[in-house]
């Protein structure tokens, strides 16, 4: 159950080398949105676009493949994508909206569909919700501290950031690599992440992340009927290369382990919150 309900799980990467050139891992999100756009399954997608400062994303509604390409790659900081979901159906006039988000953001989307109090004409227009695996997130200032103070790299010099194999890595265009162990980054984790009980975006249509797959590939969970239909069409149209998840190296075992670790740790946090003070506790959002 730590991996949520899913219809199938594969290891995949985008077939388009142009997408892979600047994607975080297998380019799944960009390629799947691009396919859905071309097929008319979505009219546009809320993605993490470029903001004012380096590696500070801001949510944008991408309605072309070029705009999707602009938004490739992971920025390890907060991008409030859900804030644009209603706007996408209003100012942008989209009838079929795609959205990519962390597990908590996908939870927000599902709540907006089941309890749509302030979300008129939004829920039924969400045509594709892609979730990304997420262990924790950092405030922008936290990310700056990690990159500039701990890794000694200017934000504007960084060409890619990555978390994997127990390390936070920053790459520069000139080829330098700085790495720090995740132990050092833990304290910059934003507080809201400490109560999160979802690692692999259990409520998404399709969720994806690098964990479990070899470098340059991504693990993909296809979860809902909408996701299954779309994924089937994309595979048929040759938009993805796939391998069986059983055949690749770290495999589902690692995904399960990390998901279990996260959920166990955060469930413990939740339990501790209940008796945080003296005879007084902190609020539990799940009851």
């Amino acid at each position: 159950m730590v991996l949520g309900n899913y219809k199938n799980c594969v290891c995949a990467r985008a077939a388009d080398p142009a997408i892979l050139s600047a994607s975080q891992d297998g380019g799944i999100v960009t390629q799947l949105f691009a396919f859905a756009l071309e097929e008319g399954i979505i009219d546009g997608a809320v993605v993490a676009g470029q903001g004012d400062e380096p590696y500070k994303p801001e949510p944008v509604v991408a309605t072309t493949v070029a705009e999707l390409m602009e938004a490739r790659g992971t920025r390890y900081t907060i991008c409030p994508n859900v804030s644009m979901i209603k706007e996408a159906t209003r100012s942008y006039g989209l009838d079929k909206v795609g959205i990519v988000g962390t597990p908590c953001q996908i939870q927000a989307v599902r709540k907006a569909q089941l309890y749509p109090m302030g979300m008129r004409s939004v829920g039924s227009k969400v045509a594709l919700a892609i979730g990304i695996f997420c262990m924790e997130n950092f405030s922008y200032q936290g990310l700056e501290a990690m990159v500039e103070d701990l890794c000694n790299v200017k934000m504007e010099s960084a060409s890619k950031m990555d978390i994997g194999k127990g390390k936070f890595s920053v790459y520069t265009a000139r080829g330098a690599v700085s790495q720090i162990p995740l132990k050092l980054t833990n304290k910059f984790e934003q507080p809201g992440c400490k109560v999160c009980l979802d690692y692999v975006a259990n409520l998404a249509d399709v969720s994806t992340g690098s964990v479990g797959s070899p470098d340059g590939w991504s693990t993909v969970f296809v979860r809902t009927k909408a996701g299954e239909t779309l994924w089937g069409k994309a595979i048929e149209a040759g938009y993805f290369e796939t391998q069986s998840i059983e055949d690749v190296k770290p495999g589902l075992g690692l995904v399960t382990k990390l998901a279990t670790d996260k959920i166990t740790k955060n469930q413990k946090n939740l339990d501790e919150r209940a008796s945080f003070g003296v005879g007084k506790g902190l609020r539990n959002p799940y009851i």
Binding site: V82, S83, G118, Q141, P191
Partner: peptide, 29 residues
């Protein structure tokens, strides 16, 4: 009071989309 101060906000932006009078913006996530 009940979300940020309680250490629960993770910056998804749902409130921004929900507000009928656009009184909410995201600052520092």
């Amino acid at each position: 009071f009940d979300v940020i101060n309680q250490g629960l906000c993770m910056g998804c932006g749902t409130c921004v989309a929900t507000c009928p009078v656009r009184a909410i913006t995201m600052v520092y996530g």
